[in-house]
Amino acid sequence: MRLTFTVNGRQQEADDVWEGESLLYVLRERMGLPGSKNACEQGECGSCTVRLDGVPVCACLVAAGQVQDREVVTVEGLADYARQRAEGGCGTGACGTSLDDAKRWQSKPADGRTGEAGAFPQQLSAIQRAFIDAGAVQCGFCTPGLLVAADELLERNASPSDEDIREALSGNLCRCTGYEKILDAVRLAAARTEEAV
């Protein structure tokens, strides 16, 4: 089947999609957006969390056909999404990503190991910056899903309690950090955002 939907504000099309494919597979293997991760493909780990019309979902549990004509935001578009939100723009990512912005996540940096990043630190969203600063990233495989989930939490609750954070992130497994620094990161992002207001 042919599939048309909006990803990070840009309309995308995929042909010859097999009906059994998940949104996760289409994003990763057909659209060159492997940021959403494939840790369990069973809806248990949250590493593939994306926003579907604003709602955080496990992309592995969404049949690709279900996203026809809908709007998806992935970790690759999180910084733009957060910026547009801060500028009072759209809450769904529908305002779109400029071509220059999109190139940032569409073009693969030559090397993922050296730390020579394709993205520019100042363009990261608050939650992305906080994850780096707080040491919440180790292997990083849970990170994209956690970022999308944490960003959604902060969108609806600007100063969450620790128990709120734990509840909101309870669908996202992390095997490296013991979650302490993830809590630190969410607290840090909330505090910085509050300070900035």
């Binding site: 957006l33 492997p34 940021g35 959403s36 992935t74 970790v75 690759e76 999180l78 910084a79 940032r104 996540w105 693969k108 940096p109 993922g112 730390g115 990043a117 394709g118 993205a119 630190p121 990261l124 992305q128 910056r129 994850f131 780096i132 990233v137 990083g140 990170t143 994209p144 970022l147």
Partner: peptide
């Protein structure tokens, strides 16, 4: 870190 938080 940056690459890991941007999904790249």
């Amino acid at each position: 870190g940056t690459l890991k938080v941007t999904g790249e």
